[in-house]
Design a binder for these strands. Structure first.
Lengths: 166, 166
DNA sequence: GCTGAAATCGCCTAACG
DNA sequence: CGTTAGGCGATTTCAGC
């Protein structure tokens, strides 16, 4: 599952599919400079290795009526592994919580949330998140505006690294 | 560009393509209960309206060698619009910065960053981000582990809303 | 208007060299 | 990895509701 087993063509495939996940296989093959069958075999292998986890349409949340985006910093009372896992499991069940990352430092988790409006979010905040077992503190910050939202990883950095230490 | 012009079939299409952006059109048509040609027309319309911004392969950053993920909270010296925009423009040029959101509250921006290793990130932090014009403070938190990372929006919430207020 | 059916075109995906 | 080849999906055209 390591990147060292990837040749330049594999990395080009990943970069292209990250940029356009619905590209046809023949178009992809053309761009990476091989014919279609081996290209498809590489894609399948990358999927099986878990290097490609899936493909997703990037839907416009605002246009769909999700006007509110919030980052929530959550502190827990107990940081015992069982309690951390329990909180993570709860996040799985909250569909307004799109991301949950455990952090180092003063705060335990950062959550990225979306909601159709402020009152929906505040109901969730007061009745679900803050009220949850083991939650000590929640600090929320509304997203005023989005300035950058790139999915995935920067392949230019990866290529620079591969060239520097081959 | 409003969600009110979307019928239930459009919302099903969006939900399906968010879950699997590489689904064939005939499979998609079967799932939403119409035949392939109108299904494809709807998808094209959704793309043109900007409700679908694109399609992206979800690549495994860790497996690709991006071991480090960091959230950075950035405070600026000046919050004048020109200065905010200038900072946002700089974020566009930093490929380690994948997301940049302007927030309310004490901090001005939250940045989601990735890097191959800690030293790469710290070089970026000290020589680029902290050194940038108008940056007053940067507080970083390493991601210890990811607990949830769902792309897009929760369509169950959307459907509940449509049923409640049609 | 939008949907569905038929037909064409192009792609996907084996099998083989 | 490339080429060939057969089957399937994509996409246009056209008719019907």
């Amino acid at each position: 599952m390591s990147a060292s087993k990837l040749d330049p063509i594999d990395r080009m495939i990943l970069a292209e599919l990250q940029a356009d996940g619905r590209m046809t296989n023949v178009e992809l093959a053309k761009r990476v400079g091989i014919s279609a069958p081996p290209c498809l075999r590489r894609v399948r292998t990358l999927e099986e290795q878990g290097l490609i986890r899936g493909y997703h349409a990037d839907v416009n949340a605002r246009a769909l009526g999700f006007e509110v985006q919030v980052f929530a910093m959550v502190g827990l009372l107990s940081q015992a592994e069982a309690d951390l896992s329990a909180f993570e499991a709860q996040c799985q069940g909250w569909s307004l919580v799109r991301e949950c990352h455990m952090l180092n430092g003063e705060v335990d988790f950062v959550l990225k949330c979306v909601a159709p409006d402020l009152s929906t979010f505040q109901t969730f905040l007061t009745e679900e998140l803050t009220a949850a077992e083991n939650v000590a503190s929640v600090k929320t910050s509304l997203v005023i505006r989005g300035a950058k939202d790139e999915p995935g990883v920067p392949f230019d950095v990866l290529e620079a690294r591969m060239n520097a230490a081959p």
